[in-house]
Amino acid sequence: MSSDSESVVLPAPSPDQIYVTISALEAGHLTLPEKLFITEADPEKRATVPSLSFLIQHPSPPKSTNLVFDLGLKRDFSGYRDAQQHHITQRQPTIVSPDVAESLRKGGLSPEEIDTIILSHVHWDHVGTPLDFTQAEFVVGSGTIHLLAHGGGYLYPANIFNPDELPKDRTKELPPVRASDLQKAFENQTQHKWKPLAAFPAVVDFFGDGSVYVVDAPGHLFGHINLLARTGPKKWVYLGGDCCHDPRILKGEKGIAMYDDGRGRLRSVHVDTDEAAATIKRIAKLLKAGKVKEEGGGEVEVEVVVAHDKEWREANQGRFWPGKLS
């Protein structure tokens, strides 16, 4: 891993390098109180922010592969458990239309044409309505299936998740990053293998051609993952999910807020604040002008987008499907 003073070096393209196209998708909005997310916040300020989703199109012959990263909010909250409903009442107002399915249709693509859905994590504002996607394979980070069924400790009890959220016969979980020897033996037999890349200790080359990398991004929730994708020569996009909830944290202008956990201890919105801070630090290196290089020489441009960036959404309306980031 690079130190703070070193450049991040991304892999050079192959002679026949594949590039993907990325389009933002409207996927609903929720309202966040600043004091729970950033340091030095106005205690009364609440902001209604997007939960962004993205369509990634990979030119796989004989047709493109359509991949969606995150599904935003459900259009119908009625199926949520009481504990989930209580949490959602604290995030009002919410906007659930258009959701991902509607956004895709508006751009001329049906939910049935989506081949793969990768979820950054399974919080309620990212899982959307999986039933809309009848043909898609779902891909989640390690530990996610156990989390949905059993929860993850007193801050993340089982009753804030739905065990049947994802289609069991079409959901694949990535292998553990920190694996025992037995797990490593299993991992070596799977398509997806974790390897270091640039500032990141563990990524998966998802298509096997250097076009899209799944990045292990620990800290926010068990199984939290991000995507790093090539969109053209010298151009990359990093989709950060909930690595942080305000881009000012990535820029170093704000820190992660800490607050009482109800048991006299401090917590943040992350399951592991130290790991989340380390993940943010790695991603922040991609923002430093002149510090992101490509193997063989030259600088590359990396655009970083996090799920709840209101200003990015407002400034990039032309890049929503059928528009493109690249």
Score class of each variant (00 low, 15 high):
Glu295Ile: 02
Gly219Ile: 11
Ala229His: 15
Lys172Tyr: 13
Glu294Leu: 07
Asp115Ser: 08
Ile88Glu: 00
Tyr259Val: 07
Ala83His: 06
Ser14Trp: 11
His224Lys: 09
Leu239Trp: 05
Leu71Pro: 03
Lys291Cys: 07
Ile56Asn: 00
Ser326Val: 07
Glu303Gln: 15
Val49Lys: 00
Asp272Pro: 11
Leu147Ala: 03
Thr129Val: 14
Pro196Val: 06
Val49Phe: 02
Asp261Met: 12
Gly107Gln: 09
Pro62Leu: 04
Leu155His: 14
Ser110Tyr: 13
Val271Thr: 10
Ser120Trp: 11
Thr171Met: 07
Val305Gly: 04
Ile56Cys: 06
Tyr259Ala: 12
Lys281Ser: 15
Pro61Cys: 03
Gln191Gly: 05
Tyr80Gln: 01
His224Pro: 03
Leu25Ala: 10
Arg91Met: 12
Val20Thr: 13
Pro62Trp: 07
Gly153Asp: 10
Lys168Ile: 12
Ala158Phe: 09
Asp169Val: 03
Pro167Met: 02
Asp42Trp: 09
Leu147Ser: 03
Gln92Ala: 13
Ala179Pro: 05
Ile117Val: 14
Val127Tyr: 04
Glu26Val: 00
Leu25Pro: 03
Val100Cys: 02
Asp125Gln: 14
Gly153Thr: 04
Pro11Ala: 12
His270Val: 07
His58Thr: 10
His146Gln: 13
Ile117Ala: 05
Leu10Glu: 14
Glu314Asp: 14
Pro322His: 08
His126Asp: 07
Ser142Ala: 06
Thr279Pro: 05
Ser180Gln: 05
Leu227Ile: 12
Trp312Tyr: 14
Ile18Val: 15
Leu73Ala: 10
Val203His: 03
Val204Trp: 09
Gly298Asp: 12
Asp274Asn: 10
Gly79Ala: 04
Asp70Ala: 12
Tyr80Cys: 02
Ile118Ser: 01
Tyr259Ile: 08
Val140Thr: 06
Leu286Trp: 00
Met1Glu: 15
Glu113Lys: 11
Ser78Gln: 10
Pro33Ser: 11
Leu197Ala: 13
Gly141His: 04
Arg81Glu: 10
Val140Arg: 01
Leu67Ser: 05
Gln84Leu: 09
Arg81Met: 08
Pro15Ile: 08
His146Arg: 15
Asp115Val: 12
Glu112Ile: 01
Thr94Pro: 01
Glu137Val: 10
Leu197Ser: 15
Pro176His: 02
His121Cys: 03
Val302Asn: 02
Val300Leu: 09
Leu131Cys: 13
Ser120Ile: 05
Gln92Thr: 13
Glu314Ala: 01
Lys106Phe: 12
Tyr154Ser: 11
Thr65Glu: 14
Ile225Asp: 12
Asp70Ile: 05
Ala276Thr: 02
Val140Cys: 03
Pro62His: 05
Gly107His: 04
Val8His: 09
Leu287Ala: 03
Thr171Ala: 06
His86Ser: 08
Val127Gln: 02
Gly152Phe: 10
Pro111Glu: 15
Asp115Tyr: 07
Ala185Thr: 07
Asp261Gly: 12
Lys106Gly: 11
Lys324Ser: 07
Phe161Trp: 06
Gly141Thr: 06
Gly208Lys: 00
Ala136Leu: 08
Ala217Pro: 05
Gly28Ser: 08
Asn66Gln: 08
Thr279Asn: 14
Gly108Arg: 05
Glu34Val: 03
Leu148Gly: 09
Thr171Ser: 08
Glu314Gln: 11
Val100Glu: 07
Tyr80Asp: 01
Val300Thr: 04
Asp4Val: 06
Leu52Gln: 10
Pro175Met: 01
Gly28Lys: 08
Leu166Cys: 04
Asp70Phe: 08
